[in-house]
């Protein structure tokens, strides 16, 4: 076949590729491998993601961040039945259950908020206080139970916590699985009528909360407040709530 010379000589054609996608194209080569700088860039991104997974959730740090963000509430701490990170990663079933002997104050409230480490404690350290503060500002007229900080938590741990607290709705704010370009992303899960055994299809999710690159606190809190109001009116959450056509802002996921 003939070789057309559509690209003017003198341009850097690699920059054409790089400008077209945020995939790691046109990295160049060293022999058949990657140039040193490109390889170490990749290593750095992977290291950040790995560290985000394996950082221990720091309750003191979170208390200070909550106070700094103006959240003046009791903060309870619970642990899932997964005793350590290695077990947590291999036994998602344990991360959905409370540790034996966990006691929570029984009561009654419209909403319980659980902050869980999930797969990125770093996301919780960086963003949970800002998000919770923005949410509470929007919940005038709601009775909100104590904040619960959950170690080695999966999303479904919010079910037994919400049930124990007598909450009509539970919101779980949790670190999402880190990607190479996003080690600090928070997810939010809303479940109406929390109790052990709820299916994932009974939850609503907002993901990628991580300003400035992802969703901002105010935007996420607006969406969540709208979902909460709709869920309270409907008396349900999950697929049925989505089907009711609650408008989510773009990128709310």
């Amino acid at each position: 076949m003939s070789v057309p010379a559509d690209v003017p000589m003198g341009d850097d054609p690699w920059s054409v590729l790089r400008g077209a996608t945020r995939a790691r194209v046109a990295l160049g080569r060293a022999g058949d491998g990657l140039p040193t700088a490109r390889w170490l860039e990749f290593r750095a991104a992977h290291a950040a993601a790995r560290d985000a997974v394996h950082t221990a959730l720091d309750a003191g740090l979170l208390r200070r961040a909550m106070a700094g963000a103006g959240v003046d509430r009791e903060l309870l701490e619970v642990h899932s039945a997964a005793p350590d990170r290695a077990t947590y990663l291999q036994r998602p079933d344990l991360g959905r259950r409370l540790a034996d002997g966990t006691e929570l104050p029984a009561g009654e409230c419209d909403l319980a908020v659980v902050v869980g480490d999930g797969l990125s404690p770093r996301a919780v350290h960086d963003h949970a206080a800002g998000l919770v503060a923005a949410l509470l500002e929007r919940l005038a007229g709601w009775s909100v139970g104590p904040l619960v900080l959950a170690h080695q938590a999966r999303v479904a741990l919010g079910d037994p916590v919400g049930e124990a607290l007598g909450a009509r709705i539970v919101v779980v704010v949790i670190g999402e699985r880190p990607g190479l370009s996003s080690a600090d992303s928070l997810g939010i899960y809303l479940t109406h009528g929390p109790r052990t055994g709820r299916a994932d299809s009974e939850r609503n999710c907002i993901s990628n909360v991580r300003p400035p690159h992802g969703l901002g606190y105010a935007q996420a809190a607006d969406t969540l407040a709208a979902l909460l109001t709709a869920s309270r009116e409907l008396g349900a959450s999950g697929v049925v709530l989505k089907d009711e056509g609650v408008a989510l802002p773009p990128g709310a996921g």
Partner: peptide, 25 residues
């Protein structure tokens, strides 16, 4: 194989094009 081992849609790491060249070589 994906560009630079980084699948920017599925958010996981597979082999890079360079990895394939290395294995062949």
């Amino acid at each position: 194989a994906v560009p630079g081992s980084d699948d920017v849609m599925l958010h996981y790491q597979s082999l890079s094009f360079q990895d394939v060249l290395t294995a062949r070589q």
